[in-house]
């Protein structure tokens, strides 16, 4: 898997995170509450895609079932809040605990393979989770899902800042992990698993760790999303949403740390716009995705980074 050299440096990534979050934190002052809500959805999609990219962009494993983490995180917090009557923090804790267990189990099963079989296993596991959410009526409400989920902090704007805070912490933690020796080990495995093995890495265990972190990060986005929307249906786990997460990550660029995050936000706005202009908005999304594949295979952020890097080289 030889690809172009990494052009972003760690410190640029960190500054970009802080810059983007700062920008997002003043945004609600200028936009209507609908757009605040939309940006909040975009941020959470971005976090979900960032989680996916830990596994894909940094560890070299294409998961086709990340909707499972998003959906399970969402379902369990909904169950905690409205079925068990737990407080918000306790529901989050419950959701995280179950996510860890599921991620470990799913990772253990699917990491017996790599490449296409890994993708198929993650797909099968998420479809199984979808079927369970669909059929376990008493707990999940079946096809209609769960609704009337209360939002902590009342207003959209307040909750928006909670989402932003959680996202900032999540992004920084992911950033710290990825630049730590563990993160560098992930990338060694991505580039050459055989070599990683020979220089003494426990490849299987490291992949599992990456899978775990990846699943939890995507799960956190799902946890935060459900109180925002107030409802969750089994569609949140269906395989097409997994594909949408892949779409978001590639839209932003999987080779830039902030790529998937920006990709999630851009995705939400493109979709919102496409839905406004035409009932055939899926067609528009398909065309945009196709254009992206041919013209911007590095994604929006990846391409910008590459441009900057080229400018810097020219200056020297």
């Amino acid at each position: 898997m030889q690809r172009r050299i990494r052009v972003s440096t760690w410190i640029i990534d960190l500054y970009s995170v802080i810059g983007v979050i700062a920008l997002l934190s003043v945004l609600p002052l200028f936009i209507s509450s609908y757009y605040t809500r939309l940006v909040a959805v975009g941020i959470l999609y971005g976090i979900a895609a960032t989680g996916f990219n830990i596994l894909f962009g940094y560890t070299g494993l294409l998961s086709f079932g990340h909707a499972m983490f998003w959906g399970l995180g969402g379902y369990i917090i909904a169950i905690g809040l409205i079925k068990l009557g737990l407080s918000f923090p306790l529901s989050v804790l419950l959701s995280l605990t179950i996510l860890v267990l599921v991620a470990l189990g799913a990772g253990y099963i699917s990491l017996r393979h790599t490449e296409i079989y890994f993708a198929m296993l993650t797909l099968a596991l998420s479809q199984l989770a979808y079927a369970i959410m669909l059929k376990w009526r008493s707990l999940t409400g079946g096809d209609e899902g769960l609704y009337g989920i209360p939002r902590p902090l009342g207003t959209i704007t307040h909750y928006y800042y909670l989402i932003l805070l959680v996202s900032l912490i999540t992004l920084i933690v992911v950033w710290l992990v990825l630049r730590s020796p563990i993160g560098l080990a992930f990338q060694t495995i991505r580039d050459n698993p055989g070599r990683a093995e020979t220089i003494g890495y426990n490849v299987r265990r490291l992949r599992l760790l990456s899978f775990l972190i990846s699943g939890i990060v995507t799960g956190i986005a799902g946890i935060m999303y459900v109180p925002l929307e107030g409802a969750i249906t089994p569609e949140a786990l269906y395989w097409t949403f997994s594909a949408e997460i892949v779409f978001m990550a590639l839209l932003g660029g999987t080779r830039a740390f902030l790529g998937p995050f920006i990709g999630g936000i851009v995705y939400v706005f493109i979709r919102d716009y496409a839905m406004d202009i035409t009932e055939y908005w899926l067609f528009v999304m398909g065309v945009i995705l196709a254009i992206l594949v041919y013209i911007l295979p590095d994604g929006v952020v990846g391409t910008i980074y590459a441009r900057i890097a080229r400018l810097q080289r020219l200056k020297r």
Binding site: M285, G286, V287, A290
Partner: peptide, 8 residues
């Protein structure tokens, strides 16, 4: 991309 576009 082809899949979602063809539905429409």
């Amino acid at each position: 991309a082809l899949m979602i576009a063809l539905d429409d």
